[in-house]
Simulated scan of single mutants.
Amino acid sequence: MAERRLVLAVQGQTYGPMFDEKLTHAAWKSKPSWHVISLNDRTLSPAMEEDAAKRSGGIAIKLPTCHVAMLQDPEKVADVITEAARNSVKSAPKH
């Protein structure tokens, strides 16, 4: 809970112009992606999150968390990251 209060206290506003900047390459187009769908998110709708995961061809993992899933349930988010890393290593091209 202390971490949550700290984030809320120090996190600044989103840098608005970043939404106008053009990407030269989106990593999800050439690399596998995993998405945590926060089912209790009140900032982004879970349906919107699921749609983004589907459009990117990513793997969607649903968690009963709020918008900041990594603070509400860090162990489960860490599990998703660990699983993504394991699967990425398995699917990486051999040199």
Rank of each mutant, 00 (worst) to 15 (best):
K62N: 15
K90G: 00
A26M: 09
I37H: 03
I59V: 15
K22W: 01
K76W: 01
K94I: 15
L63S: 10
T65H: 05
R86D: 01
L71P: 02
D51C: 01
D79G: 07
V36L: 04
K54L: 13
C66S: 11
L23D: 09
K54Q: 11
D79W: 08
V36E: 02
I61Y: 09
V7H: 03
E3R: 13
T43P: 00
L63A: 10
L63E: 09
L63I: 06
H95M: 12
L8E: 15
R42M: 14
P74N: 10
Y15E: 08
I81V: 15
R42C: 10
R4V: 03
I61K: 14
E21W: 09
E3A: 14
Q72L: 02
F19Y: 13
A60R: 06
V7M: 05
V89H: 10
K90E: 14
K62E: 13
A27Q: 06
C66L: 07
S45A: 11
I61F: 06
T82D: 03
V68Q: 08
P17L: 05
A92L: 10
E21K: 02
A69S: 15
R42V: 15
A69C: 04
K90P: 10
K62H: 15
E49T: 06
D79E: 15
R4I: 06
Q13K: 11
D79H: 12
T43N: 09
T14V: 13
G58D: 06
D41P: 00
P17S: 01
S88C: 10
K76F: 02
A85P: 03
E50I: 00
A85W: 04
H35K: 03
I59N: 02
G57I: 09
K62I: 05
S91I: 03
N87Y: 01
E50F: 01
F19D: 10
P93G: 02
G58C: 12
I61W: 12
I81W: 03
M1T: 13
K31R: 11
A52G: 03
F19R: 13
P17D: 07
K94H: 14
M48K: 06
A78F: 08
S91H: 02
D51N: 09
S33I: 05
G58I: 11
P74K: 11
P32K: 04
N87D: 02
P93M: 03
A47F: 04
L8T: 07
K54C: 09
